[in-house]
């Protein structure tokens, strides 16, 4: 091979390697900057106390609490429905049926719909249509459910995370060997018994991965809850599903863009970002580890 050729090759490979390392470098810089910016403010007290002095000081406990509550309600809605959809796609639908393909297309579409659209949908459907309808029917038009609250925000978020659950669970179900299904059926188990006793227990780790990824996604998304239930500041924690709530991501956004004195609260902002980043980072890391184990098992 000619020398010129070899140099071109080295340059080309070098460029691709540079691109990969550039991405890794940016990830590291981002992590480091956020950690350095937030580490001084970050403390147990910061995590467990309320904001003070018009959010100029104090902690972010209500935002953590609100985020946790949001992802719990969201998971309760998204995980069962996502799991069942995945079961349908793997166990009941034939690969080539139009219905299965339509569902797959819908799931992928759902995964690519901009998150802000879910917010609009939550407003138009959950708050105005369902909530408003509930108020009209049960409360004689008195306003209770027809306004932003944690229930509607969580349900909106569950729609966004549904594809995450479906994809993870489906992947896990496919790792349950066909031989085990056959063994169960050959013993006279029905299809549903096989699913319930063999397939679902066999894909527990996938269901867990799906839940973790969904929680991570739901904890970090802000756009869907901008106008479906997140609040700027609340003096009390939400106690009912019809209450509004504070949220880590929303808190960052508000503090960074609308705080009365952005510079003064900068440490709080960094620390809040650090908390959110650590939370999603840990969750994703767990999911990546479980998933890579699952993939190795499948091989």
């Amino acid at each position: 091979m000619s020398k010129k050729n070899r140099i071109t090759g080295a340059l080309f490979v070098g460029t691709t390697a540079f691109s990969a390392f550039l991405i890794i470098a940016v990830i590291i810089i981002l992590l480091v900057v956020i950690i350095i910016g937030g580490k001084d403010t970050f403390s147990w007290e910061f995590l467990t106390s309320f904001p003070q002095d018009g959010m100029m000081k104090g902690g972010i406990f209500p935002a953590i609490y609100g985020t946790a509550l949001l992802v719990v309600i969201m998971s309760v809605a998204a995980v069962p429905f996502g799991t069942i959809t995945a079961i349908y796609l793997t166990e009941y639908a034939s690969e080539t049926s139009i219905l299965a393909q339509t569902i797959r297309f819908a799931v992928r579409t759902l995964a690519t719909v901009p998150s802000i659209i879910f917010g609009l949908f939550g407003l138009g459907f959950f708050i105005k249509f369902v909530g408003g309808g509930m108020d009209d029917v049960f409360l004689g038009g008195q306003l209770k459910w027809g306004q932003p609250n944690i229930l509607w925000a969580s349900l909106t978020m569950s729609l966004l995370t549904l594809p995450v659950v479906i994809v993870s669970v489906e992947e896990a179900i496919r790792t349950v060997p066909r031989e085990m299904r056959e063994a169960s059926l050959a013993l006279g188990a029905t299809k549903w018994e096989t699913i319930r006793r063999i397939v679902i227990p066999g894909s527990r780790s996938g269901i867990m991965t799906g839940t973790i990824l969904a929680v991570s996604r739901g904890a970090g998304e802000v756009a869907p809850i901008l106008f479906t239930g997140a609040a700027y500041y609340l003096a009390t924690l939400p106690t009912s599903l019809s209450d509004q709530f504070m949220n880590l991501g929303y808190h960052i956004y508000i503090m960074a863009t609308q705080s009365a004195n952005v510079d003064q609260t900068l440490p709080i902002q960094f620390a809040t970002t650090l908390v959110l980043l650590m939370l999603t980072f840990m969750l994703n890391l767990t999911a990546v580890i479980i998933r890579s184990r699952l993939r190795r098992k499948a091989k």
Binding site: L30, I34, G220, V222, Y250, A256, T273, L277, T280, F281
Partner: peptide
């Protein structure tokens, strides 16, 4: 998996 609000903040 980084939330977009974190990237936005950065």
């Amino acid at each position: 998996g980084f939330p977009s609000v974190v990237i936005g903040f950065f």
